[in-house]
Design a binder for these strands. Structure first.
Lengths: 341, 341
DNA sequence: AAATTTTAGTTAAACGTTTAACCATATTTA
DNA sequence: TAAATATGGTTAAACGTTTAACTAAAATTT
């Protein structure tokens, strides 16, 4: 039978309280007995019962992870990686992650994730854009919550975000350093904070380098930021601006679209036009040429989110913290030094 | 404060035992009191404490889900979908899924998933190919286990599998029905039961149609079954066999490689050569022409797996069951009727 | 040396359920 | 009509922890 704390206490010749204190380091115990107890625990392969523990402490030891179906099922395993980061970190902290997905069109009538209703989680991680109706319905439950890669309306929650501005800066500066001056920014979904922040980084880099910002080199719309939109925006860009020598696309998918357009129209990459993306998706390495981009450390995003929520749970204080995860420039072959044509 | 069973009992004017019996339907209670209790539960928004329940029943209400990192992070969300199926079904059954991934090279020294060590799961779902060392180490714990999309060595576990033979049969018959006679099968990783089963289906279809099986139309190796290998095998196939009019590839990735080869070499698809794949991955629809393939109902795989494990847990009997999930033929534009060249 | 504090431990209650054993009362059977 | 059996409920123990309150012995302070 599974050993209980009682078995340990008996075998070690102490009370069960002492065993508990040893396990939880919650009271000073003499080195001698501590050792004896620990040996006994090892020898019987004892693991405390989680349910007994939760029952008395009122803590479940679980953290809920919510994201929308479509985010979870995306071809590019972005949120999957974030989840992996949280799961990994949770192992060390002794928490379990309860993952559930909701419909992207979650509404009034849909029932909340059952771990909310059951009170089976101590805290909540919410990844990616989710319907605000969910957020408002959730708020009634007063569960400590951390948002990952999404700024909820009202913005009074702790957050873990990608440093998109820094990324935009990094990407654009890379092109500037290569000697480019006619640098375009293209992106759809420009209402999304991530994409508009990247644009801010772009502008900042130009300012830093004292290169005038030219609005005719900035092509944005609110379309879904995929390859197709990249292609579409590249077309608009290049039919009006022959002089452009480099393009910073709001994300890799659109960068691929841009490359597609350029190839179709006889431009050589990077000889004629340099292209840089953002995200570092898996497809990048398959491209010809491989795409220079900004790497987003997804696993780390998850790790940080878990640390933050655990911190929140331990210190009870509703730290109103905002963690920005730095990104890296990954130089591959789609960018090269400017050469006059 | 969170209401307890006691609050319900008090408010409804019965004992806590009665409340418990009503909730669990484990003893006959008069319609009248039953109603009163249920009303009270609703009105106080009462949910039984999971930990208290586990403590006394010895059941955790959790099911572990194990897969390797690389499977979880695959670009094609195959296992992610399976997981979603289990999670979805688990909601209905009142179980929680604890997902954890292990390294593909899991070995003696790696520690087992902590939900095993902690005994925090009642049952186990294992998806995809995993190291046999894990299986043997797991067996010591005697946890009811169901394997999904993988036949463990020894094969004495309940399984939920894709009906690959039927799929192979379906794919090949489709080509036969279109009038093709020179039908090739190509695939890497031929040691993998899924891929070899598909080959069996292929052969069976030919036999059924009384078309001789010709080994020079079957090109297999043990390479990783990706696009590149599809391209490679197509090259070998077509340099030796000009008369081939249709190709059944062991999976969609390789089918894409085949299409790539054909296009590069001036074959028109499907006019000159019909191509059919297997899996129905997301990329298929993006192709030109869209790929005819065999759809694998991934979510359903997960649903069935969960049902099976729950059954196992309820009936205690180690049902040695093997569930085959049927697949569907999805006809798109990469296959067409045979026309003599 | 007496009084106080510290240290290292024990005792026992509490957490919120399930469930075996029990007990009335009403119903059926002999 | 008395005895046996259903019916619908109650009581209380048990599950395995944590932790407040307590105690005895040792160390420190006065």
């Amino acid at each position: 039978m599974k050993p209980t704390i009682k078995d340990i206490a008996n075998k070690a010749g102490v009370s069960i309280a002492t065993v508990s204190y040893v396990i939880n380091k919650t009271k000073p115990i003499s080195a001698e007995t501590k050792n004896r107890v620990q040996k006994t625990i090892k020898s019987l392969n004892y693991h405390p019962s989680k349910s007994a523990r939760s029952l008395v402490t009122g803590k479940t030891g679980n953290i809920g992870f919510i994201l929308t179906d479509d985010h979870f099922l995306r071809t590019e395993p972005f949120y999957t990686r974030i989840f992996l980061g949280t799961e990994f970190e949770a192992r060390g902290e002794g928490y379990y992650i309860l993952l559930t997905s909701i419909k992207p069109d979650f509404n009034e009538k849909d029932s909340l994730p059952r771990f909310i209703l059951n009170k089976s989680v101590d805290g909540l991680l919410i990844a990616g854009k989710i319907p605000s109706i969910l957020i408002s319905r959730l708020s009634a439950y007063n569960i400590p919550t951390v948002f990952v890669d999404f700024i909820p309306p009202g913005n009074n929650y702790p957050l873990v975000l990608i440093d998109n501005i820094q990324g935009g800066l990094l990407a654009t500066s890379h092109l500037i350093n290569l000697g480019h001056r006619n640098i375009a920014y293209i992106s759809g979904d420009i209402d999304h904070p991530s994409l508009s922040d990247r644009l801010s980084g772009y502008k900042q880099a130009l300012e830093n380098a004292k290169i005038p910002i030219r609005n005719n080199l900035i092509f944005t719309n609110t379309n879904y930021p995929d390859r197709q939109n990249g292609f579409y925006l590249a077309k608009k860009l290049f039919t009006n601006n022959k002089e452009v020598t480099s393009v910073f696309a709001g994300n890799d998918a659109q960068a691929i679209g841009v490359m597609h357009y350029l190839k179709d129209n006889g431009y050589k990459i990077p000889k004629d036009v340099s292209v840089i993306g953002f995200d570092d998706i898996e497809a990048d390495l398959m491209l010809d040429p491989p795409l220079t981009t900004i790497r987003v450390p997804k696993v780390e995003l998850g790790v940080e989110a878990l640390r933050l929520i655990v911190n929140l749970l331990k210190n009870k204080k509703s730290i109103h913290k905002k963690i920005l995860i730095p990104v890296d420039l990954i130089i591959r072959n789609s960018t090269s030094a400017y050469k006059p044509r």
